[in-house]
Design a protein around this nucleic acid. Structure first.
Length: 558
RNA sequence: GCGCCUGUAGCUCAACCGGAUAGAGCAACGGACUUCUAAUCCGUAGGUUGGAGGUUCAAGUCCUCUCAGGCGCGCCA
C-alpha cells in the first residue's frame, strides 16, 4: 500500500503547489505535504492536514483552502473519492483496486512481505543482556533479552545488517568477589570456614554452594593445603565459566543467540584501553588532576568530568566502556544500540559524550533503557537482588509460563514503561494470554489450508481472483490491516519500538478471528471461496512474518 | 537538593512527527457452536488522560509549576 500513499501524495502535492502559486505563496512557504492514517472509520484511508497548515499564511479558512485544493486534485483509478472533513482534513478513499495490490504483495512476497530497504547497506550492532557472569539471569534480564533480540530482528527486517553482541564483564571487582565467595563456601563445606572468611558483599545465593561443591568433587580437598591466593583463580575460573555457560543455555532456550560474545578482559589484553586513553589525550579530551586521569565529558554536555584512571593507577569501568565503544565504531557500525537497565540511566550523558569525543555523531549511539520488572507473586512483591541470593531466575519463569508467553509478555510493552510481572497471573493467564490468541489465529488459518488441500483446492494466484467479491466489512478490515504491515515495520524500526509489532500481530489476529466467525472460506461459491482463500493466505503471510520478527512460534495446530 | 523515567477505564496496557469521536484485553453483564478449531465472535457498561496554568486552528502528546511512584547522582561496577 506504500505505492498508493505515494501516488496520493503526488496528486496532492501537485494540487497544493498549484493553489499556492495562485495564492501568491513562495515555494519556501509551502509546508511539506504529509499523509497519515486516520484513526477512525469513515475518515478515509489516508488523510492530510495540509489545508490547516496553509490556512493561516493565506489568511483563509481551513475548510475553504481544503476545498480549493480538492478541486485541483486529478483523478486516478485507485482514488474512489475525496472528502473535506472536520476542521479541514482532506480524506482520501481508495477503490477496491488496492485489495488486489495487497494480495499480490503479500501472497507473492511471502517471507519477504513487509521487508524494507530502510537500512540497506548499513550496519547496526545491538548489544544487550550483558549481565555480569556472577549469577543466573533473572526476570529483568529476560526483559532486556526479549527487547534486544526483537529490536535486532526488527532492524534485520528493515534491511539493516545486524550483529547481536553480549559484553562479558569478566574483569574487575565483581569477578573477584565471585571467586572469593565460591572459595569461602568450599572451605565452609569442608568444615573450616575460618580459613577463608566469606567476603563482605559476597554472593550469598545457593548456587555458590553448588559451584563450590563442583570444585570439591572435581579436585577433592587439595586446596586445603594451598595458599588462598594460589587456589583463588581456580574458584574464580570455575564459577565464571559455569555461570556463563548457564547464561548461554538460558538465553538459547529463550530463543536468543548472539553473534559475538565480547570479553572485557580482552580489551585489556589487546591494549585497546590504553589506545583509547591515548586517543583522548591526543585530542585534548583528557587531563590529569589529583593524580588521576580525567575525561572532560563536560565539553560534551555531561554535568561533571569523569575519572578514567584512578590515582592508584587502576582504570575505571568507564575507561573500559569508552574503549569498548571505540572498538564498536572501529568495527564499522553505522549505528550502535545499547540495551541497558534503567538504573544505568545516569550513565547515558557520559557515554554519549564519549561517542562525540571519539568523533562520531552522538545519535550514532542509541541507548534503550529498560525499566525495571516489578516481580510479584499473587500480588505480593518479590524482592530481587543477585547478591542477597533472593531472586526468581529467568529459567524458573520459563518453566512456569513458557518461552512464547514470556517473550510476548515482554513484547507487549513499551520498554520505558515499568512492568508488573505477576507469576501467579502469568501462569493463570497462560490460557487466555495474548500470545495464544495470536497463535490460535495462525492455527486456524493452517486448519483452513489443510481442509482446502484435502478438497484439492490450491491457493489461487491473486491476479486470477475477483477482488470485487471481497466487500464485507470484516474482509476489508482484514485486508487493510495486512496492507499496513510494511508501514508498521518501518515505523517500528525507525522508532526502535519492537512492541509495535506485537500489537500489530494482535490486531491482525483480532481482524482475522472476526472475519473467521462471520464468513466461511470453504463451501461457498467458487469465485468467492477463491478470493477468500487468497485473503487468508495473505493473512498467514503477514502473521507469520510478524511472529518471525518477535521470534514467537507460529504453530500448525493447537 | 539536582537529574532521568512513569502516571490514561476497577486491573494490565496501547495511542505514528501535536490532528477529527482516547482504544484493546482482563474483571462484570447479555447473546452466538449441526458448517474451515468456541483458546473464538457479537453486544452492553466502564474516562475531566494525577492536578493547575500556558502555547496552538488543534494537546494524552509540547512548555512552566505542582502532586505521587520508580531509579540515579562515587577516584564503585
Amino acid at each position: 500500500m506504500k505505492e498508493v500513499s505515494l501516488l496520493f501524495k503526488d496528486l496532492l502535492t501537485e494540487a497544493v503547489t498549484g493553489f499556492a502559486k495562485e495564492g501568491g505563496l513562495l515555494p519556501g512557504d509551502v509546508p511539506e505535504v504529509q499523509l497519515e492514517r486516520p484513526r477512525h472509520e469513515g475518515q478515509g484511508d489516508w488523510a492530510s492536514n495540509i489545508a490547516m497548515l496553509m490556512a493561516k499564511r493565506l489568511g483563509l479558512r481551513p475548510r475553504d483552502v481544503a476545498a480549493e485544493i480538492v478541486s485541483r486534485i486529478g483523478t486516478d483509478p485507485h482514488l474512489e473519492k475525496i472528502e473535506v472533513a472536520g476542521p479541514g482534513f482532506i480524506n482520501f478513499f481508495v477503490t477496491n483496486l488496492w485489495v488486489r495490490d495487497v494480495l499480490e504483495a503479500a501472497v507473492k512476497g511471502r517471507e519477504n512481505y513487509g521487508r524494507s530497504e530502510q537500512g540497506k547497506g548499513k550496519k547496526v550492532q545491538v548489544e544487550f543482556v550483558s549481565a555480569n557472569p556472577t549469577g543466573p539471569l533473572h526476570v529483568g534480564h529476560g526483559r532486556g533479552a526479549a527487547v534486544g533480540d526483537m529490536t535486532a530482528s526488527l532492524l534485520e527486517y528493515a534491511g539493516w545488517q545486524v550483529e547481536r553482541e553480549y559484553y562479558i564483564n569478566d574483569a574487575g571487582l565483581q569477578m573477584n568477589l565471585l571467586g572469593q565467595s565460591t572459595q569461602a563456601r568450599y572451605f565452609e563445606i569442608l568444615g573450616c570456614p575460618e580459613k577463608a572468611p566469606f567476603p563482605e558483599n559476597g554472593y550469598k545465593g545457593d548456587y555458590i554452594y553448588e559451584l563450590a561443591r563442583e570444585v570439591l568433587e572435581r579436585d577433592g580437598k587439595v586446596y586445603l593445603d594451598v595458599p588462598l591466593e594460589e587456589s583463588f583463580p581456580v574458584f574464580q575460573e570455575h564459577a565464571a565459566t559455569t555461570i556463563l555457560e548457564g547464561i548461554r543455555e538460558d538465553l538459547s532456550r529463550f530463543g536468543v543467540h548472539f553473534d559475538v560474545w565480547f570479553s572485557e578482559k580482552s580489551l585489556y589484553e589487546k591494549g585497546l584501553v590504553d589506545s583509547a586513553l591515548s586517543f583522548l589525550k591526543e585530542r585534548g579530551h583528557a587531563y590529569e588532576k589529583d593524580g588521576a586521569l580525567w575525561f572532560r565529558t563536560t565539553a560534551f554536555g555531561d554535568d561533571k568530568d569523569r575519572v578514567l584512571v584512578r590515582s592508584n593507577g587502576v582504570t575505571t569501568y568507564f575507561a573500559s566502556d569508552v574503549a569498548y565503544h571505540k572498538d564498536k565504531f572501529d568495527r564499522g557500525f553505522d549505528l550502535v544500540i545499547d540495551v541497558w537497565g534503567a538504573d544505568h540511566h545516569g550513565y547515558v550523558p557520559r557515554m554519549k559524550a564519549a561517542v562525540e569525543a571519539l568523533g562520531k555523531d552522538r545519535d550514532a549511539l542509541q541507548i534503550l533503557l529498560i525499566q525495571f520488572v516489578n516481580l510479584l507473586r499473587g500480588g505480593q512483591q518479590v524482592s530481587m537482588s543477585t547478591r542477597s541470593g533472593e531472586f526468581v531466575t529467568l529459567k524458573e519463569v520459563l518453566d512456569e509460563v513458557g518461552v512464547d508467553a514470556a517473550r510476548f509478555f515482554f513484547a507487549m510493552r513499551r520498554c520505558d514503561s515499568h512492568l508488573d510481572f505477576d507469576l501467579e497471573l502469568a501462569k493463570k493467564a497462560s490460557t487466555d494470554n495474548p500470545v495464544f490468541y495470536v497463535q490460535y489465529a495462525h492455527a486456524r488459518i493452517q486448519s483452513i489450508m489443510r481442509e482446502a488441500a484435502s478438497r484439492k483446492m490450491e491457493i489461487p494466484d491473486p491476479s486470477s481472483v475477483d477482488v470485487d467479491l471481497l466487500l464485507e466489512p470484516e474482509e476489508k478490515a482484514l485486508a487493510k490491516r495486512i496492507a499496513r504491515f510494511p508501514e508498521e515495520v518501518e515505523k517500528a524500526a525507525s522508532e526502535l519500538a519492537a512492541h509495535r509489532i506485537a500489537f500489530f500481530a494482535y490486531d491482525l489476529a483480532a481482524d482475522f478471528h472476526a472475519f473467521y466467525n462471520a464468513h466461511r472460506v470453504l463451501g461457498v461459491e467458487e469465485p468467492l471461496s477463491k478470493a477468500r482463500l487468497c485473503l487468508v493466505e495473505a493473512t498467514r503471510v503477514a502473521l507469520t512474518n510478524a511472529l518471525a520478527i518477535l521470534r514467537v512460534e507460529a504453530p500448525e495446530r493447537m
